[in-house]
C-alpha cells in the first residue's frame, strides 16, 4: 500500500526524531492502530492472569497473603482427592462434550457448505442464533426438561413408556454433558464450516473421476483436509467448557460438580485465593496438555488415513 507520507505536514514539530519516523512506517502505524485494544487486553487480561499465577505460588494465613514461594497449593490441587476428582471429571466432561458436539455438528456443517447454495449465510445465522441468546436461560430450560417433574418425564409418563418418573435424568454428569453439548453445538459449526468452505472441490471431482465412491472420497479427502477445522472446533468447545460454572450448578447436582465450582468457593466463602489460583492454573495447564495430545492424535490419524 502506498504511504501517504508526502501529504503529511512535514514541518510538524519533532517529526525528525527516530521515534516519530518509526510512527510513519507501516509497522509503526500498525502498532499505533492496534494499541488501544491491545493495551486494554494486556492490562485487564494478561496482567491479571499473571497475578493469578503469582498468587498460586503464595499462601494465605487468615486474611494476610504470605508472598514467599511455595508449591503447597499445587500439592493440594493435584493430590487431594476432592480436587483431583473434580479436575478429572471436568476434563472428562469437556472432552466428551467436545467430541460429541463436533461429531454431531460435522454433518450439519457439511450440509450447509455443500448443499447450502445461496442460503449458506441464512443457515449459519439460523444455527448460531440459539448460541447467542441466553446462556443462563438455556441451562435453566434443560433443568425444566430433565427435572423429576420435568417435561421429559411427564411426556414419557403420558406415553406410558415409564410407570414412574425417572430420577436419573438430572443431577448427574450426563445431564451436564447433554446441556453443555447443546449449549456449544452452534459454536462448533463455524470452524467446521470454514474449513469445509476452503476445501478444493476439484479434488473431490478428480477422485470421483478416478473411481472413488462417496465414502472413500469423504474418508480420504474431505475428512483429512478439514482436520484443522475439526481441531479448532474441538478446542473452541473443550477449553471453555472445562471451566463451566452454571451447568454443573443447575443440572449437574452433587455428582456433577466441576472444578469451576471449587474455584469459585475459594474466591468466595472459603476464601483461599492462592489455593483457588492454583486450581485455576492447574486446570488451564492440564486442559492445554490434553488439547495438545488431541492435536497430535488427530495428526497421527490423518497420516494413517493417507
Amino acid at each position: 500500500m502506498p504511504t501517504s507520507a508526502p501529504t503529511m505536514p512535514a514541518a510538524r514539530a519533532g517529526s525528525r526524531t527516530p521515534g516519530s519516523r518509526w510512527l510513519q512506517t507501516e509497522a509503526g502505524k500498525g502498532w499505533v492502530t492496534i494499541s488501544p485494544p491491545l493495551i486494554y487486553a494486556l492490562l485487564l487480561l494478561i496482567g491479571p492472569i499473571i497475578v493469578i499465577v503469582a498468587n498460586s505460588f503464595w499462601s494465605q494465613d487468615y486474611l494476610t497473603i504470605d508472598r514467599s514461594f511455595t508449591l503447597e497449593n499445587y500439592k493440594a490441587a493435584l493430590t487431594e482427592p476432592i480436587y483431583r476428582d473434580l479436575l478429572f471429571r471436568s476434563l472428562f466432561v469437556s472432552v466428551t462434550v467436545a467430541f460429541v458436539t463436533v461429531i454431531l455438528a460435522y454433518p450439519v456443517a457439511w450440509f450447509v457448505s455443500f448443499r447450502g447454495g445461496r442460503y449458506k449465510g441464512l443457515w449459519l445465522f439460523i444455527i448460531t442464533v440459539p448460541f447467542w441468546s441466553g446462556y443462563l436461560l438455556r441451562i435453566l430450560s434443560w433443568k425444566v426438561i430433565l427435572g423429576y417433574k420435568g417435561v421429559l418425564n411427564e411426556t414419557l409418563l403420558y406415553l406410558g413408556v415409564i410407570a414412574e418418573p425417572l430420577s436419573s435424568l438430572i443431577y448427574n454428569v450426563n445431564a451436564a454433558i447433554i446441556t453443555l453439548a447443546h449449549s456449544w453445538a452452534a459454536f462448533a459449526i463455524l470452524p467446521l464450516f470454514v474449513s469445509l468452505e476452503k476445501l478444493d472441490r476439484s479434488l473431490l471431482e478428480a477422485a470421483a473421476d478416478l473411481g472413488d465412491g462417496p465414502v472413500r472420497r469423504f474418508l480420504r479427502i474431505t475428512l483429512p483436509l478439514t482436520a484443522p477445522g475439526i481441531i479448532a472446533a474441538l478446542m473452541i468447545v473443550m477449553i471453555p467448557t472445562v471451566g463451566d460454572y452454571v451447568t454443573p450448578k443447575l443440572v449437574g447436582g452433587k455428582d456433577g460438580v466441576m472444578i469451576a465450582n471449587a474455584i469459585q468457593v475459594q474466591f468466595g466463602k472459603a476464601s483461599n485465593w492462592p489455593l483457588g489460583a492454583a486450581l485455576a492454573v492447574s486446570t488451564m495447564v492440564i486442559v492445554t496438555m490434553v488439547a495438545g495430545a488431541i492435536v497430535l492424535l488427530i495428526a497421527g490419524l490423518k497420516r494413517l488415513v493417507k
Binding site: L45, I239, P240, G243, A260, T283, M284
Partner: peptide, 11 residues
C-alpha cells in the same frame, strides 16, 4: 476461548 471463570477470577 478462555474459560470465563478464569477471566472473572483474575480480574
Amino acid at each position: 476461548i478462555l474459560p470465563e471463570i478464569i477471566i472473572a477470577i483474575s480480574l
